[in-house]
Amino acid sequence: MNKLLFNTLSLSVIALSTAPVLSNQPIPTQPKQPQSFISWISQAIFKKEPPIRPHKGGSRPTVGNPNDICMISPDEPKTTRVVWSDRPLFIWQGQVNKIVVLKNTRKKWTQPVTETQNISTYTADEPLQPGETYEWRVFFEDSLSLSVNFQVMEAQQRDRITADLQNLEKQLKAENKDPEAIALAKAKYFAENQLWSDALQQAYSVQFRSDELQKMIKNIDNLCNVPK
């Protein structure tokens, strides 16, 4: 078995060796897809089709090389991507000069980015609101951009997930698990509920101390090599 995959899966199994008792109520998310988080890791490593659909350039003017820009998360599936986080992490590939979040064409947040930057967390004073749909836009020229819509999940569903995550973290801390193991456990929880953007946000939420996890994050770029 590929050593990277084996080590990554081992960390996930260790972090989740004792699963907490979570909410018994079903969590309605997006339509179920067949991939589990473990298979997604495998697919990301081996460059197979992942359960997310990054939005790539190609339908816009060629000035600024839009074909080189890929909006990884939130991504663009057939239906609007739903996220749990009210301060989501934006991940892209390619050279852009700023990212913007809009609500009904009105700017909620603008963040200039460096030429080499490819992640940024929503940092406005007010969090995004449950149940609302927003537009994430990346600018590669002053007036040229690409965009993806996403929705923050409804409050009742979001509160249930928040309680589950608190219980999960409490148990893992009682077992003296480190922040990396806790983040991996949360990422698996999100992925099992088809919340892929939140799973990725957890993957980026800790300082990675192992070469294996560094390589796993680096392999996320391979998502942009998958044709839509």
Rank of each mutant, 00 (worst) to 15 (best):
K3Y: 12
F6K: 14
S12K: 14
I14N: 14
S17Q: 15
T18A: 15
V21G: 08
N24F: 08
N24L: 10
N24K: 13
I27F: 02
P31I: 03
Q35W: 14
S39P: 13
S39L: 15
F46W: 13
K47H: 12
K47G: 07
P50V: 04
P51L: 05
G57H: 10
S59F: 12
S59P: 09
R60I: 04
G64I: 01
N65K: 06
N67F: 00
I69Y: 02
C70A: 04
D75F: 06
E76N: 02
K78S: 03
R81I: 00
V83F: 04
W84Y: 08
W84S: 07
P88N: 04
L89F: 01
L89C: 00
F90I: 00
W92N: 04
V96N: 09
K98M: 04
K103I: 10
N104Y: 08
T105E: 12
R106Y: 13
K108R: 12
T110L: 15
P112Q: 12
T114E: 13
Q117M: 15
I119P: 03
Y122F: 08
E126Q: 05
E126S: 06
Q129P: 08
G131K: 08
G131P: 04
W136I: 04
V138K: 09
F140R: 11
E141F: 15
L144E: 11
S145L: 10
L146Y: 05
L146R: 09
S147A: 03
S147D: 02
F150W: 03
Q156I: 15
R160D: 06
R160A: 06
T162H: 15
A163K: 14
L165S: 00
N167S: 08
L168E: 07
L172A: 07
K173S: 01
E175Q: 14
E175Y: 12
N176T: 09
P179Y: 11
I182Q: 11
L184W: 13
L184G: 07
A187E: 09
A187M: 09
E192I: 01
E192L: 01
D198P: 05
D198W: 13
Q201H: 03
S205F: 00
Q207H: 08
Q207Y: 03
Q207P: 03
F208V: 10
E212W: 11
M216G: 08
I217T: 10
N219Q: 15
D221C: 06
N222M: 07
L223D: 01
V226I: 12
P227R: 05
K228D: 00
